[in-house]
């Protein structure tokens, strides 16, 4: 995967970010809104593809030999990684460049909502809040979208049991 050069240059020069070849740059929560606005307004990344929160629980020391060879960093605190992905539509030459960036959000903190930049992020951010528990600050309507309003917990966190019972329906 190679990212579009103008977006990579923008990230490196203006925001001083290091581009990861596979997953895009790692952006701090403070810079996210400025980067998103620049990407949309200056580089025409107008099509919102997705936002995904991935929950990483705290990695404790792994003793067993058979777990060797993993690239999880021991001692990482509990956090979610929020991946954003955008697309640039251009009719005359019909190119579809994609660009991705990610934000690391420690548990208990929040990340700025980008639904003001791309309207399409509105429900997807609500979904990630509902299922993973990432808080998007500044979201106009941050309610649960999939689960009932009084549902306890966030089902897609790694520590949530898949067969959690719910009285009286299951």
């Amino acid at each position: 995967m190679s990212w579009p050069t103008d977006a990579a240059t923008l990230c490196q020069d203006r925001f001083g970010l290091e581009i990861c070849e596979a997953e895009g740059p790692l952006v701090s929560a403070d810079q996210a809104l400025a980067l998103a606005t620049a990407l949309k307004d200056e580089l025409d990344f107008r099509f919102f593809v997705h936002v995904v929160s991935v929950h990483y629980p705290e990695v404790e020391a792994i003793a067993a030999d058979e777990e060797k060879g993993i690239d999880a960093i021991i001692g990482t605190p509990d956090h979610t990684m929020v991946h954003y992905r955008l697309r640039r539509l251009a009719n005359p030459n019909r190119s579809t460049d994609t660009f991705a960036f990610r934000i690391k959000v420690p548990t208990g903190e929040s990340t700025p909502s980008l639904s003001g930049v791309w309207l399409g992020a509105d429900w997807q951010e609500r979904e990630q809040y509902d299922l993973v528990g990432t808080v998007f600050s500044g979201h106009p309507d941050l309610r649960r979208i999939m689960m009932p309003e009084d549902w306890p917990g966030h089902p897609l966190r790694r520590d949530y049991a898949i067969d959690t019972s719910h009285f009286p329906w299951r």
Partner: peptide, 12 residues
């Protein structure tokens, strides 16, 4: 087994 699915309508 899923948290949100009723395991059969004959439960209610």
């Amino acid at each position: 087994d899923i948290y949100s699915v009723v395991p059969g309508v004959d439960t209610f």
